[in-house]
Design a protein around this nucleic acid. Structure first.
Ligand SMILES: NC(=O)c1ccc[n+]([C@@H]2O[C@H](COP(=O)([O-])OP(=O)(O)OC[C@H]3O[C@@H](n4cnc5c(N)ncnc54)[C@H](O)[C@@H]3O)[C@@H](O)[C@H]2O)c1
Ligand SMILES: NC(=O)c1ccc[n+]([C@@H]2O[C@H](COP(=O)([O-])OP(=O)(O)OC[C@H]3O[C@@H](n4cnc5c(N)ncnc54)[C@H](O)[C@@H]3O)[C@@H](O)[C@H]2O)c1
Lengths: 204, 204
DNA sequence: TGGGCATCGTGATTCGTTTCACAAGCGCAC
DNA sequence: GTGCGCTTGTGAAACGAATCACGATGCCCA
């Protein structure tokens, strides 16, 4: 499946949920409007799912949701860990949207001894040793990294060594990882700077 | 300048900072390695800056930084506001990396009366009325939106009506905005779901 | 039961981006 | 000074994705 398509599937899922259960069926055109993409593009994307829309009618909303979820691998909840429970890590730990999206935060971990044992959203912050054990025990494959940039590479190496295969990295650091490990970078500064570019280059 | 290029410029800036001041000069190849892109791509990107590297030598590190900053419109600090000071908004307010990236959080705003007046990282949380006044007074053009998804559209409309031109939206909601307003979406669930896709479709 | 309409699926086309490949240019060593 | 090695800048080619355009098809209603 093309990379560009994969990156739009979660969008479609979100749009379908936004549409709600007023309609039992959705046309590529309707979905395209909500998602802000071209309707032919939507159809081509959905065709990769082996999805079968009905000509003259559209796609069955619930079935399409299910297919998207299946394609994205969201049939079961993924266990994930959060490493680095500072400002950002705590905010993520408190976030209630994980469940709805198909994920389950099974633990919070930090290197700072003074934080260990503290509770965030009902979960106890655990040590880095616990992290290694928990990942192995629960076969966790996904980690959210919210340590300072300086510690990110070191922590990532450790995560990889104990079996993590996907990392969502919030630290502004470019991780060197084996190419068996998939990483996505979320960088606030980058986003703002891109906005800055367009802001600065406005026809005034 | 191509969209794809603009989105890489912040990356280059970050890489240059990571390289540090050990080297006075950087080759496209060196930068490409750190950034994880093709070196011809780097050269083509930098050529849009009107940048002049020196054949046989490379680019002057400091001059290149300055050019990138200029291209991105980071010559002065942009004033930004944070709207919705909950878990995530507070984390962002506490974040110390804004300054280094070229931004200055001038105010925090929330609709919840019980939050107004509370301090986060030394700043008082202010009311939505103050928000309107402050945006107009300081001619703020960029806003960070961290309200619940349900309130996002309404708040965005208000922001636009008082002059905001760029929005960084963390709420999982698709904003309808006039096309004079630029918006970037940061969506945790989307990122995790993309990772989930690749995780699920691994050759096992 | 058949005609018309809405909508899908998809080949062909266009567009934007990445990569390749190499001539041109600079600096340094001898 | 002259030659050699390194690195840029960029046209051309390859690639991937978005869009167009339209035939195929199922549904609804007369
Ligand atoms: N806070 C934000 O809004 C924000 C925004 C964008 C990016 N970031 C990035 O996210 C990361 C976290 O930001 P923050 O504001 O939460 O920082 P923070 O300092 O509040 O939290 C970092 C946490 O990581 C822990 N830590 C440090 N070294 C560790 C290690 N080796 N192993 C495990 N844990 C370790 C610290 O004890 C601390 O609890 C930083 O890299 C920051 O640049 C934060
Ligand atoms: N917390 C996270 O880690 C996280 C992760 C991804 C996405 N998000 C999204 O970010 C947004 C904020 O998340 P959060 O966890 O901080 O939620 P939160 O409920 O803690 O904070 C939301 C804040 O917005 C304020 N607010 C509500 N309505 C408002 C209005 N009309 N105008 C101004 N302020 C208003 C609330 O008073 C509250 O302080 C949500 O949309 C959430 O889905 C959060």
């Amino acid at each position: 499946m093309p990379k560009a398509t994969v990156e739009r599937l979660p969008l479609y899922l979100q749009c379908l949920q936004a549409i709600g259960d007023s309609e039992t069926t959705v046309s590529s055109d309707a979905l395209a409007n909500v998602a802000g993409v071209n309707s032919a593009n939507v159809r081509k994307d959905l065709s990769y799912l082996g999805s079968h829309g009905v000509r003259g009618v559209g796609y069955d909303r619930l079935e399409l949701c299910a297919q998207l979820r299946r394609a994205l691998g969201l049939t079961d909840k993924w266990p994930v860990v959060i490493v680095g429970v500072g400002n950002l890590g705590s905010a993520l730990a408190n976030y209630q949207g994980f469940d709805a999206s198909g994920f389950n935060v099974i633990g919070l971990y930090d290197a700072d001894p003074s934080k260990i044992g503290a509770r965030v959203d009902g979960q106890r912050i655990k040590s880095m040793e616990d992290l290694e054990l928990d990942i192995k025990k629960h076969e966790v494959q996904m980690a959210i990294l919210t340590t300072p940039a300086g510690a990110a590479q070191e922590v990532a190496d450790m995560l990889v060594s104990v079996g993590i295969l996907s990392i969502l990295n919030f630290a502004p650091a470019l991780l060197k990882l084996p190419d068996t490990v998939k990483c996505r970078q979320v960088d606030l500064a980058t986003e703002l700077q891109i906005l800055s570019y367009y802001q600065a280059s406005r026809p005034t």
